[in-house]
Design a protein around this nucleic acid. Sequence first.
DNA 1: ACTCGCATGTCCAGCGCTGGACATTTCGCG
DNA 2: CGCGAAATGTCCAGCGCTGGACATGCGAGT
Lengths: 337, 337
Amino acid sequence: MSERANIRDVAAMAGVAVKTVSRVLNGHPYVSADTRARVEEAMQKLDFRPSVAARILSGSKSNQIALIYDNHSPFYMFQIQTGCWEQCKQHNIRLLAQPVDVTDPTVGEQVRGLVTETHVDGIILSSPVTDCEPVLRALEALDLPFVRISPGTNHALTSSVFMDDTQAADDMTTYLINQGHRRIGFIKGHQSHMASEDRLFGYRRALDRVGIQFEPSLVFEGEFDFESGVRAAQYLLDLPEVPTAIFASNDDMAAGVLAEAHSRGIEIPTELSVTGFDDTTLARTVWPPLTTIHQPMAELAQTATEILIAGNEITHRRLPHSLIERASVAPPLRKTI
Amino acid sequence: MSERANIRDVAAMAGVAVKTVSRVLNGHPYVSADTRARVEEAMQKLDFRPSVAARILSGSKSNQIALIYDNHSPFYMFQIQTGCWEQCKQHNIRLLAQPVDVTDPTVGEQVRGLVTETHVDGIILSSPVTDCEPVLRALEALDLPFVRISPGTNHALTSSVFMDDTQAADDMTTYLINQGHRRIGFIKGHQSHMASEDRLFGYRRALDRVGIQFEPSLVFEGEFDFESGVRAAQYLLDLPEVPTAIFASNDDMAAGVLAEAHSRGIEIPTELSVTGFDDTTLARTVWPPLTTIHQPMAELAQTATEILIAGNEITHRRLPHSLIERASVAPPLRKTI
DNA sequence: ACTCGCATGTCCAGCGCTGGACATTTCGCG
DNA sequence: CGCGAAATGTCCAGCGCTGGACATGCGAGT
């Protein structure tokens, strides 16, 4: 009873040829609705599961795709994985989540290995693997379709989904300015993330628009993690003329700012406004809850997966972001400048 | 040049029989060190990657294991995945991370499907799937080795790794008592997590030991998430006689307590002590950083993977926990009782 | 009645590897 | 020197499925 059902068993039960079952399995045309139903019923009854291995070996699609990532933010990865997973589930395709280390000189080899070993049909690259040259080259050499989530560089030959980081940072900066802030600290992200530059650019653009002079000393280069947020806050709050608001380019760093401010007895948001970026669950978990940019990570992942599965032409899709007002921003106490 | 190398190619280059290459691949005895070296060199040069599919199909091991999870805490899953992954990498085996929904009536089927489709050699169950009857039954029917991470129920027929939740909760409670607290609120976790009961039991045991009367009204049943922590805090802080300390049985709920306290202007830890459980990165990210129990999640996952890969006899391994003192606990202001 | 196009069946090779059965050679050691 | 174990080879079937080539039956359109 526990013997795994065969395609032959299914054929027998449905009273059709093995070939027909195969046709049903692969969504061939030229199968009548009636036959298809009978076959599907038999598959159901026998709890038949086509062996992925056999299908791969016999040269068809593997019905597997891989998600390659290297990101140490649990939140980010969780959302991305979940987004991909949901889409895969609907299409009945299997997802292999594969962590890699972009700084490892053998990444390219690793990816090639993954592909040749598992015969995945396509690949989703999440940032920052999206801009990892060795991986990109390996994938191109293998001639495998892939789509990139939030790539930094543009690449006409490959699909991608992304949000407008520059505009989002601009929005946030403008929001802060509208609240009355003129002196706004900015915590930049790590260089390996191309988005870091875009966000900085958005910040500058918003400043320029209203004629606020950009001041390099107000920018601190962080690494997207909590600790660098703390360091950034230490730096910015020790400035001779301290900013009235700090715009961290992700939530983790904003949390670091919050922590440092707390430990100095600085009250948020009355004495200092803080904003994040990403809208990870962290933004709701810290105190006060962060005003931040909602980056639609799950949707990005879902869309990427859709595009990959549809697998037709190269697609580039921009998804909308939004500014989430919570409680970490208030007008400045003392007007600076 | 980009043609995938064959086992035949390797054999040819190494000047041996295909069978010998296969022997090397499968770690057979009766292969001289010299031959093995030659074969390995050839594999290297040709960048040969044995097709997982072919190996599975030909009836050998698949060199794949699956990690099955259903846990909405990104931190937890990230750590578990990372732990498994590292171990797998060392043994050169592939990890399939598979989310499921334990409340779905078809979980059993889903798992059976996963196994028969992918031919994984073994399975790692992370909490709460560890105690999901349908999954357990399916796995037993399939006669597949599996190991459980932090199972709630005991199961002599299956391997497991775990920590002593009761002792840990006891430790934490005792610590709080030693700081002078007598009236300690406890936020219980969700029932589906068996560990919830253990932690509650540890809390009671510590209370009993020093002769503090257990008070059911000081226990709030949460759901392991931030929001339920907030609700718990609202409840506990509205009690006629408010506790001087709140022990949340995970960090997310502790963060909720922190948030609620902040919004009421209650100062932590001077006016209220708060402790968490798990030592997720969240514990370091909130303010003040949480005194919590370090649950060795990555190690648990690693150990589980090791056991599964070694795959010999049934093993049960307890890993040590530790109490991490940070800044969310202080002696109570006013002695209660 | 005669095509078509659809729906299905038959037959067979082959994906890349392993396992079993067995043969052969080499080598150390008593 | 002879024997058994170690080291390798040969040969072949088969895992479960798909794809191609081709045959056939059947109903609809002209």
